[in-house]
């Protein structure tokens, strides 16, 4: 079981996520990045291929234990691409003498064989990782900086539940614009309550509504600004449950749905149904109906799903730190983020 020992770092991460010690996606992202940084700097790997194998085994581990956790795997996938890039540039430097003829006639397996032992590889990857870490950390600031391009004066904006990215976005916009925010409370978890309290503290006019009032309010809403758990490869979302009906109502009233997303939330995953096995998980039904309800609980089914699938046609815009993109462009962002060969580890 040498394999398991080596994976102790990642199993620790999985445990922390499982027990909600790490809840925030940004925290998970940073923790994952640190984990890989440690792995790369301390572990005894000889070639890029070995290193990639180590990373891939970690991705597999996470996918097995937490099929719905995508942030950590996305970070790892992106780092795989970084390794590939660094290897290629290092290999190119070394073989500068290669002629065009050699390049053309070269066997494809030669180019993609990451087995060469390059001395400078470790440090160059670590350098690149440092940059990546800064990018992750500043991502939500960069998203928030675009707020004034999307919110005009006296708007009515709807958001669902709580998201740090959305919160920062709205607060940044509120610095020089007056607008109102309608917060959907998001029963049975009620994250919307703390969101609303926090927005109100920053002098934003905030209205809290129950989930049932979404359709009624939507006719007066100018924009729906939400965050998501995952952006799927087709441009759809895996978002908090209830967002699908919010998006449907928005479509009914032609209200644009803007999704704020960090780059690490984009995944090469295709899921096109709510009932996909790996797609959804259900939380404790005690949030829906208290155990004090008594005997009646023996005879009923209670569901408390966490996620909703939102098809891409209901999403108007994605905003990442690189700017805005339509859902139809997600495939292209993915190919910039991850290497084709790593889509399915």
């Amino acid at each position: 079981m040498q394999d398991m020992e080596n994976l102790s770092d990642v199993s620790h991460l999985v445990n922390e996520i499982k027990h909600k010690k790490l809840y925030n996606s940004l925290d998970i992202a940073l923790k994952t990045e640190e984990l890989l940084e440690k792995l790369i700097s301390h572990d005894q790997w000889k070639s890029a291929r070995e290193l990639m194998k180590l990373v891939k085994s970690r991705i597999k581990f996470i996918r097995k234990d937490l099929p719905t956790e995508t942030t950590a795997t996305s970070i790892m996938r992106h780092i795989l691409k970084i390794i590939r890039e660094e290897y290629e540039s290092a290999a190119k430097k070394k073989g500068e003498g290669q002629s065009l003829h050699q390049l053309v006639t070269a066997n494809s397996s030669d180019i993609l064989d990451y087995s060469e032992n390059l001395g400078s590889l470790r440090s160059s990857i670590l350098d690149h990782l440092g940059e990546y870490k800064v990018e992750i950390e500043s991502s939500s600031d960069n998203i928030a900086a675009q707020a004034s391009e999307h919110i005009h004066t006296d708007e009515m904006i709807m958001t669902v539940g709580k998201s740090n990215t959305v919160e920062k976005f709205l607060k940044t916009a509120a610095k020089d614009r007056n607008f109102k925010v309608v917060v959907v409370e998001g029963a049975p978890f009620y994250y919307g309550h703390s969101m609303a309290a926090s927005l109100a503290k920053s002098n934003i006019q905030t209205i809290v509504i129950p989930d049932s009032a979404v359709f009624a309010m939507m006719s007066r809403v100018n924009k729906v600004i939400i965050s998501t758990h995952t952006v799927l490869a087709n441009g759809g979302l895996r978002a908090a449950s209830g967002i699908h009906s919010v998006a449907l109502a928005a479509k009914q009233f032609s209200v644009p749905v803007v999704v704020l997303s960090h780059m690490y939330k984009f995944t090469p995953l295709y899921v096109v149904s709510n009932n996909h096995e790996a797609f959804n998980i259900c939380a404790s039904p005690a949030d829906v109906i208290p155990p004090s309800a008594g005997k009646i609980l023996n005879d009923i089914d209670v569901y408390n799903p966490i996620f909703d699938y939102v098809p891409p046609e209901l999403v108007t815009l994605f905003i990442s730190h690189q700017g805005g993109n339509a859902p139809s462009y997600v495939y292209r962002l993915l190919s910039e983020l991850y290497h084709q060969d790593d889509y399915d580890v």
Partner: peptide, 28 residues
């Protein structure tokens, strides 16, 4: 809905209870 749930369960109807956020999950 809890009141309806109670009455139906007493009568012996098989019931499922969800909140409105789970609509999309259950509607299928």
């Amino acid at each position: 809905g809890k009141e309806l749930l109670r009455r139906l369960v007493v009568a012996g109807v098989k019931c499922t209870y969800v909140l409105i956020n789970s609509l999309s999950y259950i509607m299928n």
